[in-house]
Amino acid sequence: MSLEAVPAPPPMVRLEGVSKTYRRGTVEVPVLEAVDLAIDPGAFVAFMGPSGSGKSTLLNLISGLDQPTTGIVEVAGRNLAELNDRELSDWRAAHVGFVFQLYNLIPVLTAAENVELPLLLTPLSRAERRKHVAAALDVVGLSHRVGHRPPQMSGGEQQRVAIARAIVTDPDLIIADEPTGDLDRKAAEAVLDLFGVLHHDLHKTLVMVTHDPHAAERAERVHHLEKGVLQ
């Protein structure tokens, strides 16, 4: 059996000829131009680039939050253009976990409740949900903060809760837009260590946007975006 005979696994993310243009009044502003990209399952990829280069826009397209003006976005074998709004919602719930720069936890919910939120969209029972929440908080090392609300936690802790929320449904793909952008060195390292765990131990596909070269170093591959063009 020759090596060539083993078919390469299909990429987790495949972009083909993707462009995105925003309309501001009468002018069309190109934000992404002719992006071709493939990300393998289990890969850890970072995107860097100056502000306004289209990094967040690219993440939105990959995670099904936005549609490209032209081109194809395929994630986990699914052409996202084929899904309507409701199907996209369900698809995101099943396949994507999000980590945001400002954590985006619901301030009136406890850490445990925040982590449990995405599980409300699954058929899991209450008891099963509890178990998943406990496991996810354990992974991020915050089992002792279950009852605390976001305002009572440091930025680093909040981001770790957000990571627990992102992985609690066991998604294929984790999307992180500047996850360390608001954290100090130490907290950032803790978050990046966690990404390492997700990557190496849990074999998640990680797509991260960052301005921080230290953070980018943790990724297997770093792509650069300049004015909407992938370098």
């Binding site: 995101r92 719930a93 301030p107 939120l117 969209l121 929320r165």
Partner: peptide
């Protein structure tokens, strides 16, 4: 606004 957008990103349906 941001909380609602976060919920919807996670997959909560508009309805």
């Amino acid at each position: 606004t941001r909380d609602i957008a976060t919920l919807r990103a996670m997959g909560f349906r508009p309805r």
